[in-house]
């Protein structure tokens, strides 16, 4: 019989980075306690894991690291409920559990040879960061065409992965457009909402795919921009969130129509979503 999918693998919390000035979003780096767990945890950008804190419960969180980053996995988590609050209280060196990898991934095979436009808003940039790091890795970069990234937050202090954003800006094989709704005195970068910036950037829909994650309001206003640019629903992908427990399609709560977001998703194209019930 295969391994019990409900039993978390033990991990050590080896590094915590506070991402935002409000201090409620942190990136947690874990290393596996058991070597075989580290070897078996084979994932792709877009997949998620169940973070497991004994005595508190579990929380499904997208994997923020890229499989090209070996030796650890990372999750960027906003402090929100019981489990994520307990996680935020932990210190480096703590031991906890992870289940996964779960769900499908960004459509890597489909993206190969195509131009990729990545659009992210606020804290919903975690699995997109995984995707970017995956694509720009020296072993992978030639598999993809142009990479364009539009990433925005409400204010400069809420942009996550600031060091990486700066490093990506310096590269000439990725076009970065980082924006904030409203800057502060220190901000010298772009100001403007994500949909507006997408319109200004105006990436060609020729042989291109967009993957987009962000608050619903951002997605609502960004999609028309991409339709106007000629992107078809088959070429726009997003990732859904739903309340989850088991993560493996049994507990019954994260369905959208006949699909379970945990095992058939979380990544869907707009064309796929159109076929499902509008209940998410």
């Amino acid at each position: 019989m295969q391994k019990n999918p409900y039993i978390p693998m033990p991990v050590d919390l080896v590094k915590i980075v506070t991402e935002v000035t409000t201090k409620d979003i942190k990136t947690f780096r874990f290393s596996f306690v058991n070597k075989e767990d580290a070897e078996n945890f084979k994932y792709l950008p877009g997949q998620f894991g169940e973070l497991s804190i004994f005595g508190k419960g579990e929380s499904p969180i997208g994997i923020a690291s890229s499989p090209t980053q070996e030796g650890y996995i990372e999750f960027t988590v906003q402090k929100a409920g019981v489990v994520t609050s307990a996680l935020h209280d932990l210190e480096e060196g703590a031991r906890m559990g992870v289940r996964g990898p779960l769900g499908n991934s960004w459509p890597i095979d489909y993206l190969e040879g195509k131009n990729v436009v990545i659009v992210g808003g606020g804290f919903a940039f975690t699995t997109l960061r995984s995707m970017i790091n995956y694509m720009i890795h020296e072993g992978n970069r030639s598999r993809f065409g142009n990479i364009t990234v539009v990433y925005g937050a409400r204010e400069p202090g809420l942009l996550i992965y600031k060091d990486e954003l700066a490093a990506w800006e310096k590269r000439d094989d990725i076009d970065m457009y980082v924006t904030v709704d409203k800057g502060d005195e220190a901000w010298t970068g772009r100001e403007g909402f994500v949909p507006t910036v997408c319109k200004e950037v105006g990436p060609s829909s020729e042989n291109a795919v967009t993957i987009i994650c962000g608050p619903p309001i951002m997605i609502r206003f960004t999609l028309p921009v991409f339709f106007e640019l000629g992107f078809s629903k088959e070429n726009i992908y997003t990732s859904l969130e739903m309340r989850m427990k088991c993560g493996i399609g049994k507990c019954g709560r994260c369905n959208v129509g006949e699909k379970y977001v945990c095992k058939d998703g979380p990544v869907f194209s707009l064309a796929e979503l159109d076929k499902l019930t509008p209940e998410y």
């Binding site: 409900y6 508190k56 419960g57 579990e58 049994k250 507990c251 019954g252 709560r253």
Partner: peptide, 17 residues
């Protein structure tokens, strides 16, 4: 019907899911 919830219960130093 097969839907279920998962939760943790702790008593002293022992717990269960």
């Amino acid at each position: 019907c097969h839907c279920f919830d998962i939760s943790d219960e702790v008593k002293g130093s022992d717990g269960k899911r």
